[in-house]
Amino acid sequence: MATIKDKICLSCLKPLSISPIRTIIEKEPFICDSCLKSIDYALYKKRIFNVEFFFLYRYSNITKRWLINFKEKRDVALAPAFLFTTHTLVKLYCFNKSILTIPSTNKNMERRGFNHLKLILDAYKINSYSNLKKSGEEEQKNADLVTRKSLQNIFSDDISFLKNKDIVLFDDVLTTGTTIKSTLNYLKDKVKSVKVLIMMDNFSNLK
């Protein structure tokens, strides 16, 4: 085990301690061996809502902690941690496809102050679109019953440029899947095909 001088692990903030082989392979390692070891990988595909879902991790352990610190405590420095071991895989999965990030409500977005999904992808220069929007309870409450029924809570500005594209929807955690379901509904007939890439699986835990 080698400890790299003056460097700390991005995740546990302890001195960066990694196996010698990694010092050769990686240009700039920034997560320690013991943090990497506690990642719970999922790496399986599932058909949900008649669409292919691909999961990277389980919603547990260190990846869950990262997400909470990242989103709730605004520790944006953690952004490169999420796809540290899986960015190549993500690039392959999304090859020749367009990535659309799943929207948060304006209220949540404002509270957080940043688009967390875009930040995670940007850390590895993975291009994505954030054209989808989601109206929160606030907006819906103000509408009368009839409009509320017809009101899609997913909307967007012009996405006609995605018309003939294969789409990968990207989200952090799948729990109940309500937002994804309405997004899939919204995109129907607007794009060529849709798959879903989820970082952490909390959906299977619930079943």
């Binding site: 405590k73 520790d75 420095a77 102050g113």
Partner: peptide, 16 residues
């Protein structure tokens, strides 16, 4: 080492 940047504003990562 323990300082992160949020919208180019520094914040401390030690005491989150």
């Amino acid at each position: 080492k323990y300082i992160g940047y949020f919208n180019s504003q520094p914040y401390c990562r030690l005491c989150l």
